[in-house]
Simulated scan of single mutants.
Amino acid sequence: MDTGTHIVMGIALGGLALADPVVANSTLTTTAVIAGTIIGSQAPDIDTVLKLRNNAVYIRHHRGITHSIPAVILWPLLISGVLWLIMPEANLLHLWLWTFLAVFLHVFVDIFNSYGTQALRPFSRKWVALGVINTFDPIIFGIHVVGLLFWMFGANPVTTFLIMYAIIFVYYILRFAVQSAVKNSVKHTIPDADEIIVAPTMKFFQWRVAAISKTHHYVGRAYGRSISIYDKFEKVPLPESDLVKAALKDKNLSAFTSFSPIYRWEITEFEKLFEVRLIDLRYRSNDYYPFVAVAHLNEELEIVNSYTGWIFSEDKLRKKLDFMPN
Score class of each variant (00 low, 15 high):
Thr30Gln: 13
Ser41Leu: 15
Ala17Val: 02
Ile38Met: 09
Val33Pro: 06
Val33Asp: 03
Ile39Trp: 01
Pro21Gly: 13
Leu16Ile: 07
Ala35Lys: 01
Thr30His: 09
Thr31Leu: 00
Leu18Asp: 05
Ala24Gln: 14
Ile34Thr: 07
Ala35Pro: 09
Leu18Glu: 02
Ala32Pro: 09
Ser26Asn: 11
Ala43Glu: 01
Leu13Phe: 11
Pro21Lys: 10
Gln42Thr: 00
Pro44Tyr: 04
Ile38Gln: 01
Asp45Asn: 00
Ala19Thr: 06
Ser41Ala: 15
Val22Ala: 13
Ile38Ser: 01
Asp20Lys: 11
Val23Tyr: 03
Pro44Arg: 06
Asn25Arg: 15
Ser41Trp: 14
Ser41Val: 12
Gly40His: 01
Val23Glu: 06
Leu28Gln: 15
Pro44Leu: 00
Val33Phe: 07
Ala17Arg: 04
Thr31Gln: 07
Thr30Gly: 14
Pro21Thr: 10
Gly40Phe: 01
Ala35Arg: 02
Ala24Asp: 09
Gln42Asp: 06
Leu16Pro: 04
Ser26Ile: 10
Ile34Leu: 01
Pro21Arg: 08
Val23Arg: 02
Ala32Phe: 13
Ala24Met: 12
Asp20Trp: 05
Ala35Trp: 00
Ala43His: 01
Thr30Phe: 03
Pro21Glu: 14
Asp20Pro: 13
Thr27Tyr: 00
Ala35Glu: 06
Gly14Leu: 08
Leu28Glu: 14
Gly14Ser: 11
Ser41Cys: 13
Gly36Trp: 02
Pro21Cys: 13
Ile46Tyr: 13
Thr29Ile: 07
Asn25Phe: 08
Thr30Lys: 14
Gln42Lys: 13
Leu28Pro: 09
Gly40Met: 02
Ser26Arg: 08
Thr37Leu: 01
Gly15Arg: 07
Ser26Ala: 09
Leu13Ser: 06
Thr29Glu: 08
Gly36Asn: 06
Asn25Leu: 15
Ala24Trp: 05
Val23Cys: 05
Asp20Phe: 10
Leu28Asp: 13
Gly40Tyr: 01
Ser41Phe: 12
Ala19Asn: 08
Leu28Lys: 14
Thr30Asn: 09
Pro21Trp: 07
Pro44Met: 06
Gly40Pro: 04
Thr30Pro: 04
Ala43Tyr: 03
Thr30Cys: 10
Gly15Ala: 11
Leu28His: 13
Ile46Gly: 14
